[in-house]
């Protein structure tokens, strides 16, 4: 598939999303669809760093929540409109990404992962103690009348369709460019990559920043979606686990893996939440993650590749 073809598919998906938005089906479809698409963004963004560069980030909640809380701050301070919130949420999270990029200078492998987890908790503590954005009590957003669309649910769903398409297209472009090949080299062996002329630090900074940006973008509309944000919901460990599990299930080396993983696991969770219970669906995520990492470490796309080779 050439880039132009991919763009066309992307536009088609957005068109499809708009069509679905126009249809006016059961509101729950938009509500659940938003969550699945949000996970497409999160899994794809996580995978730019975790899958392409091989740096496992446990701190996904930190970036997501930073997007959400940047929105809250800007709503509170400036009544800023949604596009501004998304861009700002992304940029602030990108800055944090740049920061953890410099951490990679000293911390490799598991130490990096543990540090990102620690970062998430420290950030949560700061937010809990910051009254302006609601502190521990949380923040309630009163949504203004919805512009252009029938309801906020439909608007946010359409928005997430567009964000997911953009994120996936960007990830795909990177994967197939010289940057993607350089990241793959440093994932395989950082010393060897550097000695073969790959500017490893610059590429790592690029990956952490971009990954952070899209994780922040995923979190920015969150206050509008839930209308009540508390630190424990924005910093939910589920984001960290899902961000890992979805690419692992789909396969981490290509853009398709996280998309497949997010759609499958995300949809399964939404269905399970309605039909069984939300606790049980989390158990499913955990079990599926462990099973995949033990039995099919290259994910579904890896399994398909293996079967084809036979």
């Amino acid at each position: 598939m050439k880039t132009r073809g991919a763009l066309a598919v992307g536009v088609a998906v957005i068109g499809l999303g708009l069509a679905l938005a126009g249809l006016g089906v059961n509101p729950y479809v938009y509500f659940a669809g938003y969550v699945v698409l949000q996970y497409v963004v999160i899994a794809t963004a996580w995978n730019v760093l975790g899958g392409y560069a091989g740096y496992v980030n446990f701190g996904t909640p930190a970036f997501f929540a930073l997007g959400a809380y940047t929105s809250i701050f800007l709503i509170e301070a400036l009544r800023a409109p949604l596009p501004v919130l998304i861009l700002s949420g992304g940029l602030v999270a990108a800055l944090l990404g740049l920061g953890i990029g410099y951490l990679t200078l000293r911390l490799k492998g598991v130490f990096f992962s543990i540090a990102t987890f620690a970062l998430s908790v420290v950030l949560q503590t700061l937010i809990i103690n910051w009254e302006y954005v609601g502190g521990a009590k949380g923040y309630t957003l009163i949504r203004p009348p919805v512009p252009f669309f029938r309801s906020w649910g439909v608007l946010l769903f359409t928005l997430m369709v567009a964000l997911a398409v953009v994120t996936v297209l960007v990830a795909r472009t990177i994967e197939r460019s010289w940057i993607g090949r350089g990241l793959a080299a440093l994932r395989d062996d950082e010393d060897a990559a550097e000695c073969m002329g790959v500017p490893t630090l610059r590429l790592k900074l690029f990956a952490t920043t971009l990954s952070g940006f899209f994780l922040g973008v995923a979190g920015a509309p969150f206050p509008y979606y839930v209308t009540y944000v508390e630190p424990s919901s924005a910093f939910d460990l589920n984001y960290a686990v899902n961000a890992l599990a979805m690419p692992m299930i789909g396969g981490t080396t290509t853009w398709l893996g996280p998309v497949i993983g997010a759609v499958l696991l995300g949809t399964a969770q939404q269905v399970a939440t309605v039909t069984i219970s939300s606790e049980l669906n989390l158990l499913i995520v955990g079990v599926v993650l462990v099973l995949f990492v033990v039995l099919a470490p290259e994910g579904l796309t890896g399994l398909v590749r293996k079967l084809r080779r036979r």
Binding site: G54, L282, L283, G286, L289
Partner: peptide, 24 residues
């Protein structure tokens, strides 16, 4: 010989399973 990262993800999953099983 793939212990470090995949192993870490494995234990992260185990942590999550225990936690959710307890709350269930």
């Amino acid at each position: 010989g793939e212990e470090s990262l995949r192993g870490l993800v494995f234990f992260f999953g185990v942590l999550f399973i225990i936690e959710v099983a307890l709350s269930l």
